[in-house]
């Protein structure tokens, strides 16, 4: 499980409110031109990739029966949007998967933060529960998926549980590490200023660990989606995972890819929201900290 370094994903390089905004003309046009160039060039690999795929498929080099074909994938997505899928409206499937992922994500994040900070703050707890966490973390998640389906049935709960477990460990290890890395000077300062243990946790430990925690959120929403979809894949009545497994069962690679496109759109949107949240919560950080934004 990854314990992503907090600075791998940093706040955007846009200047801070109140920082140096002298020479607005200079500062304004350059990033704008840069953004235009980036956006234009960004699509080149995509176009080359899809175009090449399409051409090779049409030329018969790639057998569309196995490899699919971009235009047909697009048509499949269009079909689903207008006519619905074999298992019901596309929006229902998206809604179900999204619900599973979001609920699992929310529970996993909260539990991960609470447990990570608790174990990071209280040595005793870390010593007692550390081995258990390590053992649990070493269980292959797919096995857990099967177990959850046996326990919780084919409904939403088993997927939520799987998503939650995946998210929990990612967030937990980051929150734990972030808590341990808190500057001892800051804790000492807060205590001298009169902070209680609780206040130290909320005013020093949590904000400081937040850099780590938010870094983990980027990864863990992906994990939540994976959890939901793998869960559906293993057995479900609705959802994008089921859509994929049905397309696979009827040898329809375009269907598999079409579901992937839908998932990618969801993941991108979620990523955007998390980045917004990050900018809000970490606005205190110096902009120099930010490297490339992913």
């Amino acid at each position: 499980m990854s314990t992503a370094r907090p600075d791998t994903r940093a706040v955007s390089p846009t200047p801070h409110a109140g920082t140096d905004i002298a020479e607005p003309a200079e500062a304004g046009t350059r990033p704008r031109r840069r953004r235009l160039v980036v956006n234009a060039v960004r699509f080149v690999p995509l176009v080359v990739f899809l175009g090449g795929w399409e051409v090779l498929a049409r030329a018969g080099v790639l057998d569309p029966f196995f490899f699919g074909q971009p235009t047909r994938i697009a048509a499949q997505v269009g079909d689903w949007v207008t006519g619905g899928t074999e298992i019901g409206s596309l929006w229902t499937q998206v809604g179900v998967t999204l619900q599973e992922a979001l609920v699992g994500f929310a529970i996993g994040v909260v539990l991960g933060i609470v447990c990570g900070i608790a174990l990071g703050r209280v040595r005793m707890l870390a010593d007692i529960f550390g081995p258990y966490i390590k053992v649990l973390n070493s269980i292959p998640r797919i096995v857990l998926g099967s177990i959850f389906i046996v326990w919780l049935g084919l409904g939403v709960q088993s997927k939520v549980a799987l998503a939650m477990v995946l998210v929990f460990f990612a967030v937990f290890f980051n929150a734990f590490q972030g808590t341990r890395e808190v500057d001892r000077n800051l804790v000492a300062n807060a205590r001298i200023l009169g902070a209680s243990k609780r206040q130290v946790t909320f005013h020093v430990v949590l904000p400081s660990a937040l850099t780590w925690i938010i870094a983990s959120l980027h990864v863990s929403f992906g994990f939540a989606l994976i959890g939901a979809i793998v869960g559906e894949f293993l057995g479900a009545q609705q959802g994008l995972g089921l859509l994929i497994s049905q397309a696979q069962g009827s040898f329809n690679p375009n269907g598999v890819f079409a579901a992937m496109v839908v998932i990618a759109v969801i993941a991108l949107a979620a990523e955007g929201l998390i980045t917004l949240l990050e900018k809000q919560l970490l606005s205190w950080r110096p902009p120099q900290l930010s490297g490339a934004d992913l």
Binding site: N185, N189, H203, P207, R285
Partner: peptide, 8 residues
């Protein structure tokens, strides 16, 4: 060392 809270 600097011990003001950077997030406040």
């Amino acid at each position: 060392n600097d011990a003001v809270f950077p997030w406040k």
